[in-house]
Computed example of a mutant assay.
Amino acid sequence: MSRNRQKAQVAVITGASAGVGRATARLLARRGIAIALLARGRTGLDAAAEEVRAAGGRALPVEVDMADYDQVVAAGQRIEAELGPIDLWINDAFSSVFAPFLQTRPEEFRRAMEVTYLGYVHGTRVALHHMVPRDRGAIVQVGSALAYRGIPLQATYCGAKHAIVGFTEALRCELMHDRSNVKVTMVHLPALNTPQFDWLLSRLPRHAQPVPPIYEPEVAARAIVAAADRPGRREYWVGASTALTILGNRIAPGLLDRYLARTGYDSQQTDRPADHDRPVNLWRPADGPQGRDYGARGSFGGRAHRHSTQAWLSRHRLVTAAGLTGAAVGVLAWRRH
């Protein structure tokens, strides 16, 4: 494998039982590789494993709480023993709370940070434990536009995603200092139609929703797989909304503060009253042994885009650059005549 382009034979996906992790597992399985599926929910894990096998891959579902470092270490040892050397580790597991910060209890905030932030730290440490001695491998951190721009009602999630960026940047510098061939990259995502809006703890009066534009999780999966193939690139942005959010926050953060203060509450809620009796996955999986399989997609499919032009252009920068260069040459030639 070259430094800039790698093809994994053994991949690990955390948060693989639903949402983006589930969609990514389906896509990688088409390559016929071995995939370790890490999550807490047995029902979702078993269903994800069946999909991987049906697509031509080998599946190893492992029940693990990413907040528990010892469980992650044990999972890594089992994966290496049963599937072989880990080439690719994708960190995607998370949990969170939809609520104003003052309505989020300290123990809930701590638990969400342990799963979402420390889960990435634990996964990365275990991946490096196996990859660094072999001097090869790739780690993909699944991030968000909210890693750079906080929004109201999601202080827990935004805090964790911001922390992941700082941690990953520091780690990348250390790997470069050591001249390691282990690569780490980030993929920052837009609003997605995933089951999180049906199982995250919410204290909102109305049902939570992603802020439009909304994309299907397969859009994210394609970007994550592309990043895994080319982990030498620092980070990937998925969706025009992600690019505009990150760039806009660099240019006019104060303006965004005021805009989100006015619109951020209503835009993250539907007109339906919240169902506070639904399963919540903060402390235990919503798709446990007696739970339902939530799958990759959530309940906003009628409003979700299946493709992103910006994401395609981002993955094919050489083609895009060549096309723009060709267009410029054509314009110049036309003007000369």
Rank of each mutant, 00 (worst) to 15 (best):
N249A: 07
P106T: 05
I214C: 11
D271C: 07
P231F: 15
T168K: 13
T325F: 14
A145T: 02
D65H: 05
T14S: 13
G15Q: 11
D266S: 12
V132Y: 01
E218C: 10
D87V: 00
A227K: 04
D198W: 06
V52R: 03
L37F: 12
I164V: 14
S241R: 03
A155P: 03
A81K: 02
G254F: 06
R206T: 13
E50N: 09
R278C: 12
V97Q: 07
R22W: 11
L313N: 04
R105W: 01
A208I: 06
A29S: 12
A47K: 02
L60H: 00
M186T: 02
I139Q: 01
P61E: 10
H276S: 10
Q154I: 03
A93F: 01
G239K: 11
A16P: 09
E107L: 15
A138M: 08
V10M: 08
T309F: 13
H188I: 06
G150C: 08
L244V: 09
T24Q: 14
R335G: 03
W89P: 03
R234N: 14
V121S: 06
P253L: 09
R233N: 14
G143K: 08
F167E: 07
T185P: 02
Q141V: 10
R297I: 13
R110P: 08
G32Y: 12
R179H: 09
L28P: 07
Q154M: 12
V73F: 00
H337I: 14
R262C: 12
R262N: 03
G295S: 00
E108F: 08
L313D: 04
H177S: 14
R250M: 04
R292S: 05
L88S: 02
A333Q: 13
G298P: 05
A240W: 05
A155G: 15
H188A: 12
A226Y: 08
E114I: 06
R134V: 13
P210N: 09
R335F: 09
I35L: 07
R3Y: 15
D266G: 05
A163T: 08
L324Q: 12
R250C: 02
Q268R: 11
V184I: 12
L128F: 09
A163P: 11
L192K: 06
R125F: 05
I251L: 10
A55L: 06
R30S: 15
H207M: 15
G44L: 00
G143P: 03
L189F: 01
E50W: 00
G248H: 02
C173F: 06
R206D: 09
Q71C: 14
C173R: 11
L318D: 14
S241T: 11
V72M: 04
A226I: 10
R42C: 03
V211M: 11
S96W: 09
G295V: 06
D257G: 01
L88Y: 07
A311E: 03
W283P: 00
Y294Q: 10
Q6G: 02
G150A: 09
E80P: 04
W199F: 05
S2Q: 04
E174T: 06
D135A: 03
D135G: 04
A226M: 12
I246H: 07
A75H: 03
E216L: 14
V73A: 03
R335D: 04
R317S: 13
